[in-house]
Simulated scan of single mutants.
Amino acid sequence: MITAAIEPTFTDWRDKARELLRRGVRPEDVCWEDATQGCGLLPENDVSDAVAFVTAEHMRVPPGFLSLASQVCAHTDERRFGVLYRLLHRLTLGGRRHLLSMPSDADTRQCQMWAKAVSREIHHMHAYVRFRLVGVDEETGREQFVAWFEPEFRVVRLAAPFFEKRFAGMDWSILTPDECVSWDGSELLFMPGMRKEDAPAGDAHDDLWRTYYRSVFNPARLKVQTMQSSMPRKYWKNMPETQSISELIASSQSRVTRMLETPERPLKPLPDNAYLRSLRGQASRPGP
């Protein structure tokens, strides 16, 4: 039995899986361990005595596998590395390159379920990260922001490119318990996880978030279960605007009643000028 103790990242799994596959090691002969959980103290068996080297031709993976693997590795299920290597072995040395198009296959289905859960968590991170202003760089004049987020899975590396593109004009850091990422305008820097106490407690932007949320909240369309489904409660504690949700829900019925009792406002006359008259004239002309 070979003990493969790795960091719980796609890069480490890929490098170790490539080495094992190159030597033809069977999935049932590998015990995958998370080195960050103290398992790195275990001796890692040498794979030099395994089967002879496999040619690069037999190690080629079908399109889509690496993308799937990167998401599966971001999950936290302790079985993920073993199942993923078994799928890789079957796709390559097993000669079953069609497995990714077979959702009925147990390994494929399990990996796709993990990937779907990770993809959903990436979306949640994109939607629910809230940056707080902590200062301004004196040399560059760039504002500096920090956010705290508690993802269910290890999705920081998968979610970071979105923030790099969206907030390229400011310096920012996203802190999570497992891993942190910072952007300085030129590159992404990944660091070990941190504690929530290291994140800023709040700033003036929190009031802006609360004001915005109150302004777009429509009591007439309130569906609490649907709201909690699209914005799970586990994220509320780190979002400033959610502090107003209980109050808004409690007052929703009275607000709807006031809306129904308020007389309709008279319609404003349409704006009128030469340019708008010319547009209306063009619209009224018959087509060719």
Rank of each mutant, 00 (worst) to 15 (best):
L99E: 00
C180H: 04
F167A: 04
T92I: 03
R154N: 08
E197N: 10
A204F: 13
R130K: 12
G185N: 05
K165D: 12
L87V: 04
F162D: 01
D184E: 04
F167I: 03
H98R: 08
L175Q: 05
D171L: 10
H98M: 03
L91G: 01
G95R: 07
M113I: 14
F190C: 12
A160P: 02
M113Q: 13
F131V: 07
A147T: 06
G82R: 04
R210V: 09
T140D: 05
R96T: 01
E150D: 12
G193T: 08
E152Y: 02
Q112R: 15
H205P: 00
R210Q: 10
T108M: 05
R120T: 12
D178S: 14
L100W: 02
V134H: 03
W172A: 01
P161S: 06
D206G: 07
Y128L: 14
H124F: 14
F190R: 09
S173N: 02
R195F: 09
S182T: 13
V146F: 01
I174D: 08
P161C: 08
R142A: 07
M191I: 10
F162P: 00
Y128V: 04
R195A: 15
R142P: 00
D171A: 05
Q144S: 12
M194C: 13
L84G: 00
H98P: 00
F149Y: 14
E138F: 09
F162K: 10
R132I: 05
W172F: 02
V155G: 01
G202M: 12
G94Q: 06
T92L: 06
G95W: 02
G95P: 01
M191Y: 11
V83W: 04
L208G: 04
R210K: 12
E139T: 15
L100Q: 01
Y85V: 04
H205E: 14
L99K: 05
L158R: 03
R109L: 10
G185W: 06
F190V: 06
D105G: 12
C111M: 15
M113S: 09
A127M: 13
W114G: 05
T140H: 10
W209C: 10
P192M: 09
M194H: 12
T140Q: 09
M191E: 15
F162Y: 15
G202H: 11
P151H: 07
M113N: 13
L100F: 06
V134F: 06
E152H: 05
M113Y: 04
D198S: 14
R120M: 08
I174M: 09
P161I: 10
T92C: 06
R157D: 03
F145G: 00
W172I: 01
V146A: 02
E179M: 13
A199L: 09
E139R: 14
S186Y: 08
